[in-house]
Nucleic acid binder design. Sequence first.
DNA 1: TTACTTTTGTGATATTATTCACAATATATA
DNA 2: TATATATTGTGAATAATATCACAAAAGTAA
Lengths: 210, 210
Amino acid sequence: MKTNKLCIMRLSKYKSALYRLKSLGFVRIFSDNLADAVEVTSSQVRKDFSIFDISGNKRGGYKIDELIEKINTILGKDELQKVVIIGVGKLGSALMHYTGFEKEGIKIVAAFDIDALKFKHKDKTPVLPLAELPEFVRKNNIKIGIITVPATAAQQVVEIMLPAGIKGVLNFAPIQLRGNDDCQINNVNLEVELENLIYFVNVLIKTKGK
Amino acid sequence: MKTNKLCIMRLSKYKSALYRLKSLGFVRIFSDNLADAVEVTSSQVRKDFSIFDISGNKRGGYKIDELIEKINTILGKDELQKVVIIGVGKLGSALMHYTGFEKEGIKIVAAFDIDALKFKHKDKTPVLPLAELPEFVRKNNIKIGIITVPATAAQQVVEIMLPAGIKGVLNFAPIQLRGNDDCQINNVNLEVELENLIYFVNVLIKTKGK
DNA sequence: TTACTTTTGTGATATTATTCACAATATATA
DNA sequence: TATATATTGTGAATAATATCACAAAAGTAA
Ligand SMILES: NC(=O)c1ccc[n+]([C@@H]2O[C@H](COP(=O)([O-])OP(=O)(O)OC[C@H]3O[C@@H](n4cnc5c(N)ncnc54)[C@H](O)[C@@H]3O)[C@@H](O)[C@H]2O)c1
Ligand SMILES: NC(=O)c1ccc[n+]([C@@H]2O[C@H](COP(=O)([O-])OP(=O)(O)OC[C@H]3O[C@@H](n4cnc5c(N)ncnc54)[C@H](O)[C@@H]3O)[C@@H](O)[C@H]2O)c1
């Protein structure tokens, strides 16, 4: 089964579009509609589905509920995903208090910091000393961590997370982190995102003549 | 000149690596070193440079300062980029008070909201009523906006930004926004990023046998 | 039932991105 | 100076990804 990152990202987007379409009263959907919603071609949608043996009905399209179910299974969303955050600063606390992840079955169960002023042992989502991370992660069988510490601290945080058993990291520090074969590290680099946008806006302005 | 999004993103990453290498005392650099820093192949690095007619010295590599300069020119970073934020909630204010963008020549000059409690007319980076956005954007010749409003409000915010002259949008609301030919909309969808990570972690765990 | 229409599912094809591989050449060395 | 060596720059080859295009199936209508 050939899969790639972009294809998996599209599956997420299809799902999100499906929830929206469902809430609008749709029960069945065609590859065309989904394509419009996610801004890809309809053959892209069908090809993606075909990779995962998702099939619909010729002429009848796809049943939204079944489709959501199937995509969730593929994405591994059968059970609640527990996630920890390391670094409870501006960005870390925004993410920590964001409720939008829960509807996707993602729950932030704890956060960690080295600044004693941030500790909140008794909160619903506690903020704990970084030193307690390994034990917490092992006890609660956590696989995923979000890094929102300064760039200078990020690699050293990874070195603590790996032996603790973390298998996936979403890193917001603007630095390329090194994992190992047992751990997938994805980076969200907002500086890079903004620079990219600026480049294409400049191209746009130039080609359109202001 | 053929360019694509990934290539531009790599340029940003090269630049960021170059700053780091420079601060470590390096003056010249080889495609190999950059490749390591950004985790791509050295031929990828050279190919990217070749697309933009960036050339080094056979056997002598590239001079870091010149390289940074050239990349900045390509990325359109000759002058300070002024950016506005719409939606001063948890995420919006984290971004607004983040100082890391300034070292990249990106300055958040104002933010907008509809909640009167958020307004800060006198702050260094003011928070203004959304209604004032068109005038502010025109007067200050702003081209880039960051959207951090709830998904339900995001499209309507775009409709206000487009006629005001915004040419590039970085959208954090988990919804596919529609722009037009005059405006580039890039999405940062953290739900999708997390789901993607979860997928690949599951694959990893399965293939490695726990 | 039959004819007609719509939409899927997927090989074949086209496009795009990456890597290979090596001639050209700048630098270092003796 | 000549020789050896490392590194670039880039076409050609390969790999990855997306689109095309159409037969097959399923629904609709008469
Ligand atoms: N704030 C933003 O909007 C934004 C935007 C883009 C990127 N980032 C990146 O995200 C990261 C966090 O940014 P921020 O603005 O929230 O920073 P911040 O300074 O507000 O917060 C950083 C937090 O990390 C904690 N910390 C420091 N070292 C630690 C360690 N070794 N272990 C655990 N915790 C540690 C600090 O105590 C602090 O609470 C940075 O790498 C930044 O570059 C932030
Ligand atoms: N907080 C996070 O960590 C996080 C993570 C992922 C995605 N997001 C997305 O980012 C967006 C913002 O999230 P948040 O947690 O900061 O939300 P929030 O509720 O804390 O803030 C939203 C802000 O937008 C303002 N607003 C609402 N409608 C507006 C309008 N029409 N014009 C201008 N301002 C308006 C509100 O007054 C509020 O200040 C949401 O779309 C959310 O889904 C947030």
